[in-house]
Design a protein around this nucleic acid. Sequence first.
DNA 1: AGCGGAACCTGTCGGC
DNA 2: TGCCGACAGGTTCCGC
Length: 272
Amino acid sequence: MPELPEVETVVRELGEEIIGDTISSVEIFRSNPIVQGDLDAFQQQMSGRKFIDVRRRAKYLIFHLEPEKYLVAHLRMTGKFIISNPLPEPTKYNRVWFNLKSNRVLIFDDIRCFGTLEVYAKLSDSKSLKKLGIEPLSAGLTPEYFKKLLHSSKREIKSILLDQKFVVGLGNIYVSEILFRAKIHPQRIAGKINKKEWSRIVNNTQYILQEAIKNNGTTISDFRRVDDKTGKFQQFLQVYDKKEEPCPECGLPIQRIVQQQRSTYFCAECQR
DNA sequence: AGCGGAACCTGTCGGC
DNA sequence: TGCCGACAGGTTCCGC
């Protein structure tokens, strides 16, 4: 479900609600496979701790708690965080309730149960955070960075941009949109992309992500913000999920192909 | 080492 | 209506 702009939206909205609040207790309605490790330990480590910060790294949400502990969450495809007043019963896909001292509940809800919740004493203990590449909105994302890392890569550019070890935060929707605006064919071999083309990729990546964040992300089917509102960026999508619709640049039909078992949408005329 | 494909889990939609 | 396959915004694991 969520890529960088959606996670960023959730992090900002959650922060405003929960920083300063304290977890009184944790109720787990379905742990497998969401909550990693021992459940009792998870509940005990979280209970009584206060949220002092919420931030994002790649598509992970990092909750900083006091006394020192970190909750690292990933929404994967259908995970959601919801702030609610107390409910009589968990609803169907509520997986974990973090009951708060303010008499509200921070709910982790996830239809498909791909999401993950992990607690660490130190962030450096997290294996998944270690493997991540550069943040796309940081100054380090440059055409030179890509060129240097990928000059001999034989992989297709779509696959490279989805791979979180090079640049983080991009997913299936934004990669199609970025390559469309950069006029790069999704099956181009990364090693053969020149400096000028990398520069178009970098510029459009940053432009699209910034615009998407301004619009609180993209709601295609079920992404929801903390307050259950939808994002607005879907109205700016030019190719994603638009098979056979006319390309906004040239009018020829948008193509759909499958790469790495995932749909890619592009214009065969405009993207070379 | 690095790649592609299967797996994780649940729901929806379209075709027959 | 019922069944079946394809597909869904992600990541990890397992062979080759």
